[in-house]
Amino acid sequence: MYDQTFSRHNPGCIVILLDRSDSMKQDWQGSGTTLAKGAALALNKVLLDLCIKSTKEVGGAARHYFDIGVFGYGACPTTGGEGVESALGGALAGQPLVALPALFSNPLAVREEAAVPALASASRESSVDAMPMLSRMPIWVEPISGYRTPMCQAISVAGSHIYDWVGAHPNSFPPIVINITDGLVTDSPYEGADLTEWAQRLVSIETNDGPLLLLNIFLSAAGQTEVLFPSSANQLPEPGPDLFAISSPLPPAMVANARAGQLPMQPGARGFVFNAGLSSLVKFLEIGTRVADIRAH
């Protein structure tokens, strides 16, 4: 289980559920940026990293190692009002899952992001000497906030696309779903099922390599104590216990990656971070998307 590598023959599927509710407009731990802006920046960086990983030949295009989905829930700037929609725009707008080469070729913009060097160094060593880290980066997702937090609907919408994807890729590494939120779910129960039931339905989707992995990160605007990859929900305030309960146990490769990043991991650690700051969000996204090796075939 969780042994398959990512390849053109057996691509992976990574889906981000991005909270775009009104509370995401809060300042993030006095950083001068909002939760929405910070999350979008971190998300754009992880999409960039996936493109980087999937680019092999100098001058070549990205290889189809992944299908990517980014679903925003809360404000829906394209369809209007509250709901769930793809957060990818431009030529990718309206496409629930996008092949990585299409993502590679269709950023919304390439622009200066002053925080990018700090963002990169939060998780990595600095760049090659004499070649300073770029501050320009491609942008695929814009920061948006408004309305409430329809997390159940987000799982429902994403789950239906993921279900179809698994049918077409039965031998791939199981889909990875990463839910980024700062708030309490506001649509539970949704269509007769509460958040826990929707999550159970989601993780019941599986390939021949194992069940879908659902990871959750709860952002904290106030800078409370972070809890990274806990192995129990003891003493977590709401909504920590509920999000812990629906988070998948980390597979060995993710545990190894986290430990390689100097993060202590207890047996039974789950894919969950509570009260995260921006640096932890970046690390979380890296660990969550580096679960398996790419094999260049």
Binding site: L48, C51, I52, T55, V58, G59, A62, F104, V110, A120, R124, S127, V128, M131, P132, M133, L134, R136, M137, P138
Partner: peptide, 17 residues
């Protein structure tokens, strides 16, 4: 390289080497 095909390739060179 003195120039790169695109911004992603340049990132790959500078960040990952």
């Amino acid at each position: 390289p003195t120039q790169f095909t695109n911004i992603i390739e340049e990132w790959k060179y500078r960040q990952d080497g």
